[in-house]
């Protein structure tokens, strides 16, 4: 499953410039963004997210148990 998801998820979060911090936590990506309003939830779900929770600039993307690995891959893209 290598893997287009990290790139797709990053794009749906508004790209590298919009990401302040991203961290994997077992089943979800905890993302602190510059601007939470640009998040494309439909694209996140298309990339395999089970759910998206937004609270202002903090967005949690539920991706399942590979969250830690996906977060590392996204960090490599930043």
């Amino acid at each position: 499953m290598a893997d287009e998801r990290p790139g797709q998820i990053l794009a749906a979060l508004g790209g590298a410039d919009n990401v302040v911090e991203i961290e994997g936590c077992i089943t979800r990506l905890r993302c602190e963004l510059e601007d939470g309003s640009v998040v494309d939830e439909a694209a996140l779900k298309q990339a395999g997210a089970h759910g998206v929770m937004k609270s202002g600039a903090v967005v949690q993307v539920v991706v399942g148990p590979e969250a830690d690995a996906i977060a590392e891959d996204i960090q490599d893209l930043l």
Binding site: T27, R28, H50, G51, V62, P65
Partner: peptide
Amino acid sequence: DPVFSQAMV
């Protein structure tokens, strides 16, 4: 926590 309460995973 909705991730758990909605059984997302």
